[in-house]
Design a protein around this nucleic acid. Sequence first.
RNA 1: GCCGGUGUAGCUCAGUUGGAUAGAGCGCUUGACUGUGGAUCAAGAGGUCCCCGGUUCGACCCCGGGCGCCGGCACCA
Length: 490
Amino acid sequence: MPGTVEPRLLRGLRDLMPAEMHARQWIIDTVRRVYETYGYVPLGTPALEFLDILRGTAGEESEKQLFEVAGPEETRLGLRFDQTVALARVVAQYPDVPRPFRRYQVAPVWRCDNPYEKRGRFREFIQFDIDAVGVESEVADVEMITAMCDVMAAFGAAGPAGRPLPFRVRVSSRRVLNLLLPYADIAPERAPDVFRVLDKLDKLGAEKVRLELTTGYKDESGSPVPGLGFSGSQVDRIERFLAIRAPRRTDVLAQVADLFRDVPGAAAELEPLARMSAQLAALGYGDDVVVYDVSIARGLAYYTGTVFETELLELPEFGSVCSGGRYDDLVLRFLGERVPAVGTSVGVDRLLVALTELDRVPPAVRRKATAQVLVTTFDKSLMDEYVAMTYELRRAGINTELYLGTEKRVGKQIRYADQYDIPVVVVCGSDEKARGEVQLKDMSVGRRLTAEVKDREQWKAERPGQFNVPRTELVSAVQRLLRVIGGGST
RNA sequence: GCCGGUGUAGCUCAGUUGGAUAGAGCGCUUGACUGUGGAUCAAGAGGUCCCCGGUUCGACCCCGGGCGCCGGCACCA
């Protein structure tokens, strides 16, 4: 039809239909329960920020991914790409907020990069952050790591019984990475380039990392990857660093200490990591769930200390579902005062994709309805009665929908309940009304029988899962039925 | 940004070596059944064949350009 607007979405943006939204809310609820056990408090900030607030915090790459928005009166705005920058702004803007300020925030963020939905990468997605601002102690870093572990454990417990969710948090430190610079005689301004390449070790392998550090190479698509032009002895030292790897955290630290034994101040930088490891161990977070891995650098430019990311062992190629680190200088931009902070972020939508892929989202979570009961409107002259029944059920705490469509035939209304997976249907026509009864229909019975019943007459004769109860017992009978069938409420 | 693939009904896709009114399955609507979901049967609605230009008597098909989508790479908070 000419003149109509084609309904469409920008690449990487999605509509989430009710079942998908229920699943997302399940993720959020589960994470929030864990975060609140740690005592974090909620914060909300706008999706839009001034461009100069967003810019210059997270490095060149992030700026390329910024969604710019035209504001009124020539103001230049952007959609937030994370929640941490806004948190730093809030801390600077409200100096009377008592510190430590430990907040959680769950909200969409926007990044204009290439979406890849199979790996849970979108241009608009929900992140669920916790951050502790004004905290120097590495106990806060430990808290971040254990919170990540506890979140993963919660999803293991919520999934299919007896199947814990295997995961691993990999931890490193920018301060330890920085020791590599004097050790390998690398100028400080080259550090971001070097760290970016180190981070690729897992994905590219040692050979390509070596090439990228020296002469560069052409990748599979023929695009040139520029080399960083380091000398052979520099690359040798970088590779010796990258070779550090051990299942036990204490062994990793020992190897780092040995490698950097001649670097001034190295021992002092390693002490906090040693204390963290001991604490983690004392709390029951062993070498199997938290590993030290010096190749973790993370791209985000604002990290200054500990960095960590979480991977699901059953989806090794998927990437991190939860990551973060310490950023002691982010507030400095706004306040001129150094405020130490550490935080971590669950990629809610990414985690949902992963758990779906692993078939670990309980089916009941992905429901299409919130209603437990549909009251049909069979006979319009009885409408007052239908409304009354609906509110009786609602006031008893039962999620109830009154059929408000135009369809008169009760069969179509039942079909509507079927399409939305509403588990119980109330039918009351003039016959029932005259007898002082209502009819309850357990939808699951018909669904179960549908495979067996071949003949329509038989189907009609059986009227599966239906029974009548006195009108006065409507609420108690529905409650009983919902208990028996498990109700669809959460 | 690079490489490859692809674009036909709401969805999944067939098709025409360039020829007249463009097809299937699923889904949707209606009815058989005006008081009951499924199945069955019947009927119906639904298309600028991605866009622009070119070649041709004639283009959904061939050619050129563009755009979208999918996959891979790069990048990734």
